[in-house]
Design a binder for these strands. Structure first.
Lengths: 182, 182
DNA sequence: GCTTCCATGTAATATGTTACATGATTAA
DNA sequence: TTAATCATGTAACATATTACATGGAAGC
């Protein structure tokens, strides 16, 4: 279980609300670890009980109040402890890839459509990451080293995916000329 | 939930035991979807109850008996149905990446060591995939199109990871010259 | 004698997802 | 007026992990 550690890493840089964290998980860090707001609120509750984070209430006008969480010394110690032990294997669940693997039974047209849609998302992500990387670079790569490296991973990942998508597109278009789909 | 669909895709090609499937999940398909033997046995049980797979007992000498599962017409229909609806978003849990993101608190030396170890694994995987791709290509890429594309994904993915690892290695080695680790 | 491979499974626990619930504000 | 953003949460359910259990054969 290292959702807690992912949260602690995010809180290292700045205090954040559960909602903020959910946004980060949906965007940048989402490439590496994902979690929904329900999980996050639950985990923040537990972390608070265990004194690894603390929070302060922030009333807002026009918006609901929020709780800004920050990491405590106990939390930092837990993070350090966790960083020392070898990371578990990466896990993935990529339903689209399962579809490609089972592509014989699928409709090539539908698969191509979905591919196009996913490619669009990936291109957008790539642009976001590239912009972020440049910003970090300008601010000083050394100071932001770990964030920079994380973003680089995102960039390389998107590019690899897009390159693969292009191969798939060509293969499927080629295939659907001779063989009628469905 | 599409562990069941991943299993059905694998059973499309050939009948297999739970043990065989677990091996495939640990290797080739593991890049795309992973599952442990406990999950697989459980899911095979359910799939059997729902008549999506059937099995035959195969007694063996010197080895425990096994159950060879094959996909049924109902199973194939279910797969086709599933292939039509859009795939859910890909999910990942990469603990090592979380570590890199939190790298400020980590020991660079330890991180580098772990990186080296993971790189080795990735290089081995890459070699396996490349050999597989070549074999499929020789046998006729058209016939093995979907397997071929799946393997290509694996190859591009490993390469992207290794390229990133190289960037990280250089950055960390550079960083640990000036700043003493720990 | 120890470990790995083969092969199957159960039970307890931990995690994650989906659905539901609330409620003001802002933009289309 | 419909939807989206902000912000937090509970409850029910589905999925996944860990630990445990068995047992012969093969290789070191």
């Amino acid at each position: 279980m290292s959702l807690r550690h992912a949260i602690l890493v995010l809180l290292q840089d700045q205090e954040a609300s559960g909602y903020d964290l959910a946004r980060e998980f949906a965007n940048s860090i989402g490439l590496v670890w994902n979690a929904t707001h329900q999980q996050i609120y639950l985990e923040l509750g537990k972390l608070n009980e265990q004194h690894m984070v603390s929070f302060r209430h922030v009333p807002q006008e026009g918006k609901p109040d929020k709780k800004l969480y920050s990491i405590t010394e106990d939390g930092r110690q837990e993070l350090i402890r966790w960083l020392k032990k070898p990371a578990g294997p990466a896990r993935i669940r990529d339903a689209f890839m399962v579809k490609v693997a089972g592509g014989q039974l699928a409709d090539s047209g539908a698969l191509l459509g979905e591919l196009e849609q996913l490619s669009k998302q990936r291109r957008e992500r790539l642009a976001t990451f590239e912009a972020l990387a440049q910003r970090l670079d300008e601010q000083g790569r050394e100071e932001n080293l770990y964030s920079y490296l994380t973003v680089r991973r995102g960039i390389l990942d998107q590019r690899a995916w897009l390159q693969w998508a292009e191969e798939v597109r060509q293969a499927l278009e080629h295939a659907s000329v001779g063989l009628p789909t469905s």
